[in-house]
Amino acid sequence: MSDATVHAAEEAAIREPWEDINRQRQAVEMGMWAFLASEILFFSGIFAGYTIYRSSYPEAFWVAGGHTSLWYGGANTTILLVSSAVIALVPRSARWLSLGSFARMMLWIGACLGIAFLVLKGFEYAEDFHEHLFPGPDFELHEKGAQLFFAFYWCVTAIHAVHLIIGIGLVARLAIAGARDPLWFSRTPAVQATALYWGLVDIIWSIVFVILYLPGRGS
């Protein structure tokens, strides 16, 4: 990329109130990590509640954990890990104009994997409803505290799904905007910010999978 092209790309990517693209990039990245820290705190309240109730009803949580679908949970964890690796390639390649189309292809693959996750989640939810695993009068399990486990299950997975839907929207928006303006795409901090957000969605799921899908197996 020539100096003139780099300058034009930086002009296209810079936004108010910044006057320098490097400062904008640093500020966006730090701001994004601060936002992700607040997101971790948001989920940590739910994880703390889970921990306290699991300590109060250890057997019920163990039995209830055995009723979640390990097949769907494992498949979705694999999908999200692969999607994270794919999205991780975007900031590594987007800054070169010659690799811009590769970076945008990775964005679309990541978005498709996110959609695949949601489709599997939909099938899993349908199966859970069919097996009466939604807290309420028809709830399948009779152990005291099992409804609490599934209250956490529905709450955490639904909130995570909302985050993933937002992530898919951000990724698709970046891919479309990047195709319209490849110069902007090669310098905008939105690439790094979007990749960081996607990473957080995967981090949260890695913990959710362990606490909701792995208890109660084997015995």
Binding site: W33, A37, S44, A85, I87, P91, A195
Partner: peptide, 26 residues
């Protein structure tokens, strides 16, 4: 995910501190 996929290994001390805050409060 945090160190390699989110490239914390290539970042300076300030960014790493920002990244660590959420886990520290947790």
């Amino acid at each position: 995910i945090a160190v390699i996929f989110m490239e914390l290994d290539r970042k300076g001390v300030t960014i790493r501190l920002f990244a660590a805050t959420g886990f520290v409060w947790l």
